[in-house]
Each structure stands twice: as structure tokens, then as C-alpha cells.
Computed example of a mutant assay.
Amino acid sequence: MITRIEIDGFKSFLNFVLDVPPFLALVGPNASGKSNLFDALGFVADEITGSGGLLSAGRGLPAEQFHRVARGAPVPGFAVSVEALVAPEPGAVLPIRFDVGAEMVLRIPRSSGAVVSHVAHHLPEELLEFIVEDPEPGVTPRRTVQSWHRYALSPQAMRCRCSPAERGPLAADGRNLAAVLGRMAGSAALADLVADLAGVVPDVVALAPRLDREECAFDLVVDGQGSVPSALLSDGTLRVLGLLTALHDPDHPGTLLVEEIENGVHPRRLGELLRRIRHRIAEPGGDRPFRQVILTSHSPVVVAEGYRTDPDALIFLDTAVRVDPDGDRVSRVTVAKPIQPDGEPGTFVSPRQVRRYLEAAA
């Protein structure tokens, strides 16, 4: 479970620090840094697993991962640190810290300005620091970051059939949904999944995973309609089903990173979806497989639900122009604004501002 994120020099972040609870909703306007935050976590995961965070970046070329400035010297590199809790064995919870980064070496070519000539994308093993001694060197770090699952679910992908040999967690786009449901068939986890799905999508009676010509498929049983093949389900129903499937999967607990959770969900049902997600949150070391959810949203429903149930789990991301004390560097950076009753202007979001946001969006 991720507990703290520190980012300096990566994309829109400079000296950025965020404490992360088991459930966190990141709300903010477009281009405020929500996706960049998930990109930073992806960079850490790629570095730890050995694939190389810059070379495998999903958005942008290697040089474009570095913070961009409007005026002044470019940043020489960036660092991303993630603190997390891991459970190496039942009943044991240990803190762990990942410190990774990259440097940019500049040269002046004959043509024009400075360009990237070299990127240090792989750090020596000794730079991977642990708060405690790792009980399984080389195993626990990789397993920890592999439990961070980022989802941008594609209904088209989730309608597809797939091989029953797929035993991994739900894919980022959900393309192996039928195989995951097949693996869960007959379990208490599938029954719990159906109960939560019925709370969000009315009239759902059951899920029916099946094998058809040696391929995994599934039907959704709806009251008054009978079995509906996955190919005929609506985009919104599939997105809700995919998210809840990842949340209930008993074999692959972890942290779910969900972008724009409101996509395809009716506003009247979104609050119920959030309540059911929160009910499934479990910290490491307990009786249930641990579940953490970090989501991004533009929806006032998410703001209202978070403000009503747990203001500490609601963070507003925004951007601000930052001028270094010496005045040599000017750039736009991401800032996190928690809800607080008072404080220095511009450093927090007050309950009154939240109410105004909700009233304006109504």
C-alpha cells in the first residue's frame, strides 16, 4: 500500500509531497497533473522491474519526462520516491521506500539549442533504499510495484473472449476480463462482486462465466431479460464491472489507480459505486487481501461524496506559476490542496470553497 509520494523534477512536479491514505480521490481541472502523478508511479514500477522507466514511458519521449521551464536553466534530472507498506507474511507489516530517478546530460550540437544526449535510466541496485532490511531481496520490491495496477478500461477490449490460460490480474484495458471472471467462478469473491455490481447497476441477478470453444466468455443475467452476452453490454456497465472485478480479485490484491472513474457511470449511481469501493478497502496485514484505491475525477459527485464521508481522502490538484527564490527559473507546477478549515491563502481548499464548487457544478 502506497503511503507517501515525493516527486522533484518529473513532468509538472517540483518539490511535490503527498501523503496517501488507503482511499484517495484526486480532483482537479484538465492539465493539473493527475495523470502525471500516475506516470510517476509507473516510472518507479518500470525501474524496479528492470524494464526502464524512461524507455518504456507511455506518454512522451524520454527527454519529455523532465520538468519544463518557461525561463531559466532546465532541471538537470528528477527523482521520484515512494513509501509503501508491505506484508511479507501474514500478520507482518513492514515499511519500504523506493528512490529512483534519472539525469539529463546536455550538449550543444552544431545546429541549435541543447538536446538530450544521454539518459541514465537504470540506477545501481545500491541506490534502492529500504527503511527496513528486505526479507526477500530482489523479490519483495518487484512484487510490491507489480501490485500497482493502473486502469483505463476499454469496453471494446472487455467484450473480447480470451484464453483460460491467462492467470494474471485484470489488464490495464480489461481485455482479459472474461478469464479473470472464469478464475473467480464459484467463489465467495464472485458472489460479493455480483452484490456490489447489483448495487450500482440495478436488476443485475448474476454473472455467468463460461467456456465457449476453449475460450473464456461471460454473460450477465438481468432480471426480466435473462442472460446478456458480454458483447451486448453497455460501455458503462462494462467499466463498472471491470473496476469491481479488479477490486474483488482474490488472487491479485494491490493498489488500483483508476483514471476518471465517472466515465460511463450515471451521476446517481456514482456515489453508490464510491461507497462500495470504500467498503472493500483493506490495509496490509489484516484478514482480507489488502486493497487500496487512488482515483482521479472531474465529477462534483466525487467531491460531494468525499467531502461528506472523509475530507482527508479528497485532494484538489491545481497548477501555479513558481518562481525560484533567486528568480532564475520560472515554471508552472502541480500543487496539492487538501481541505482545511483555515491556513495561508492559496495553500488549501476551505469547506466554503468546496461548497461553492458543488453549487457551481449543480
Results as ranks from 00 to 15, higher is better:
Thr3Gln: 08
Gly9Lys: 01
Phe10Thr: 00
Phe13Arg: 03
Phe13Leu: 03
Val17Gly: 08
Val17Ser: 13
Leu24Thr: 01
Pro29Cys: 09
Val44Ala: 03
Leu55Tyr: 09
Leu61Gly: 08
Gly77Thr: 03
Ala79Trp: 01
Val80Phe: 09
Ser81Lys: 15
Leu85Asp: 02
Gly91Pro: 00
Ala92Gln: 15
Leu94Val: 03
Pro109Asp: 13
Ala114His: 07
Ala114Gln: 08
Val116Asp: 05
His118Thr: 01
His121Ser: 14
Leu123Ala: 15
Glu125Met: 10
Leu128Val: 14
Leu128Gly: 05
Arg142Gly: 11
Gln146Tyr: 10
Met158Val: 07
Arg159Trp: 06
Arg159Phe: 06
Cys162Ala: 10
Ala165Gly: 08
Arg167Tyr: 07
Gly168Met: 06
Arg175His: 13
Leu177Pro: 00
Val180Arg: 10
Ala188Glu: 04
Pro202Gln: 08
Asp203Arg: 14
Leu211Met: 15
Asp219Thr: 00
His266Trp: 08
Leu273Asp: 04
Arg276Thr: 04
Ile277Tyr: 05
Glu283Val: 15
Phe290Thr: 02
Gln292Tyr: 13
Val293Trp: 05
Ile294Ala: 11
Val303Gln: 13
Tyr307Leu: 08
Arg308Asp: 13
Asp324Phe: 09
Val335Tyr: 07
Lys337Ile: 09
Pro338Glu: 11
Gln340Ile: 07
Glu344Arg: 15
Phe348Cys: 02
Phe348Val: 11
Val354Ala: 12
Val354Trp: 07
